[in-house]
Nucleic acid binder design. Structure first.
Lengths: 117, 117
DNA sequence: TTGACATATTCCCATATGGGTATATAATAT
DNA sequence: ATATTATATACCCATATGGGAATATGTCAA
């Protein structure tokens, strides 16, 4: 089965740093491909191909206007990532110190896995 | 160059749903492999291999205790993901409606890209 | 029609993947 | 020494990747 396709979900799509950069450049704006190309300095086919992935996975939407195609971020599709990672926030913040952790663990260990050291 | 290795950074490591599940199961606890295996019901080698990736990328740390290896989440390594995705939060919240977007765009368009429809 | 512009698509290739199965290593118990 | 438990590693394979270069498609202008 190999690795899941990049178009399988936002997590996979966004694993590629270039695609993150594109989303950053877009931000809240709607931009044509050539402006993204200009902003990033990459070959145009490269930008188009990454945009195609982002579009297929729903992270951007495309609108045609004359010869240009205007892309915009579909932020709701990033929410699953935020929702998944946000709960871990408490573990790196100042509110979470080793001591609390240890105390919490000691209480549970009474009827838990044996751990000899 | 193909896709960047899964061990290249947290984004790539976490793109695999099974690895996310492992991190969820771990949560704030320190668990031996067999408990993770039991919790998820996957073949042990599969769990070990995913743990190896998570460890190499720094998302978990390992401690040996007797014959077991105890794993714990290294939450700080998830912070880059949070930091990247969090700024987009404002775009899916109630505070960001289409109207604001359109008005903002109209003002800029005066000296911007020509968009005919 | 012809040309210029904006963007997408095709072709090629080295590379790492995740799953399965089998086996290796390490530590403890008998 | 040997068996058992806990975990890691090796091997095989189908598959999609991202980059580069070339080319196709689509739209407007003269």
């Amino acid at each position: 089965m190999a690795r899941k396709p990049t178009t399988h979900d936002p997590f996979n799509a966004v694993a590629e740093p270039k695609r993150r950069q594109i989303l950053e450049v877009l931000g809240a704006e709607e931009l044509p491909v050539n402006e993204i190309v200009e902003a990033l300095g990459w070959p145009q086919p490269m930008v188009s191909k990454h945009l195609a992935v982002l579009k297929e996975v729903g992270l951007v939407s495309e609108r045609r206007a004359g010869r240009q195609r205007l892309y915009r971020v579909n932020a709701e599709r990033l929410k699953p990532i935020y929702d998944w990672v946000a709960p871990f926030e408490q573990y790196w913040g100042e509110r979470f110190d080793r001591l609390d952790q240890i105390l919490e663990k000691m209480q549970k260990e009474k009827q838990d896995v044996p751990k000899k050291e």
